[in-house]
Amino acid sequence: MTTDRRTRALNSLHGLALGDALGSQFFVPANRDFLTTRSLPPGPWRWTDDAEMACSVFAVLARSGHVDQDALATSFAEHHDFDRGYGPGVNRLLRLVRQGGAWRELATDLFDGQGSWGNGAAMRVAPLGAWFADDLAEAARQAALSAEVTHTHPDGVAGAVAVAVAAALAADPNPPEPRDFLDRVLEHVPPGRVHHGVRCARGLAHVPSAEIAVRELGNGRNTSAHDTVPYALWAAARNLADYEQAFWTTASTGGDIDTTCAIVGGIVATHVGAEGLPKRWRELCEPLPAWAV
């Protein structure tokens, strides 16, 4: 069954927010045993900055049909909730944008002019990939534009490109097998550490052990794009038809759990649709904000 781009992107957004919200629960010490037993912690589950920023990506696409960088920066700043777990650099950037600062200069100046190579642009971009699923090159181009609003380092941009292309591929009712899936992603990811990591993930596509994959690829512990995106794409490619299995595979290895699960959730939900998200999980998850949908 084919779906229109708005529906695809909204499905992805729901899956992203659900992965983010449930994943974030395992940072609470009292809930860590639930991860070991693969059982659900008590709700409600509140999503973090991952989903909040993804809501802006979706809202801008729904309004304009493409990434309007100025509109995206404004939306990020207007809806920025400090208590959602933003990193210090983005907290400062969005506060200054609200005060009239120029986002292009602020984003470029991060980390002594290197720009951020964090995983923040990748964590929010899956709905964009779902939106542009009919054109992988355009998905990559629009993902780069969305990343540059906060992450100008080439690796930060590449992480967003990789996730967006993966989400676009996931919209195919008959997606490629994991190794071919990751090959297709690599066609659009520029050279650098993210590309290298995804190539390593491609080499591990036949390996069933998440622990082995994490040892080689990372799990977001350093919150960089290159130690987050490769493992998330490995987990998504191997579990594309099963949201629940994809989540537990991703979460079980620790690291930046809310972000890796947001990325995987957004990709997998593009494939399985809203009906493929566990009903009980959705009931426990904080609803998306009215301004976004």
Rank of each mutant, 00 (worst) to 15 (best):
A73M: 12
S75E: 13
A77E: 05
E78H: 00
D81E: 14
F82T: 13
D83W: 13
R84I: 03
Y86F: 15
P88I: 11
V90Y: 00
V90P: 00
N91V: 03
R95L: 14
L96N: 07
L96V: 04
G101Y: 08
A102S: 11
W103V: 00
W103N: 03
W103F: 13
R104I: 04
E105I: 08
E105Y: 05
T108R: 15
L110C: 07
F111W: 12
Q114F: 10
G115F: 06
S116E: 09
N119G: 10
A121M: 01
A122C: 05
V125Q: 06
A126P: 10
P127C: 08
L128H: 05
L128M: 11
G129I: 04
A130I: 02
A130P: 02
A130H: 07
W131E: 04
F132A: 03
E138Y: 03
A140W: 01
R141N: 06
A143G: 08
L145I: 09
L145F: 07
S146P: 06
S146A: 15
S146V: 02
E148M: 10
V149N: 03
V149F: 05
T150D: 03
H153Y: 03
V157H: 04
G159N: 11
G159V: 13
V161C: 09
A162F: 00
V163I: 13
A166F: 14
A168Q: 03
L169R: 09
P175M: 12
P175T: 11
E177Q: 15
F181A: 09
L182K: 03
L182G: 04
L182V: 12
V185T: 10
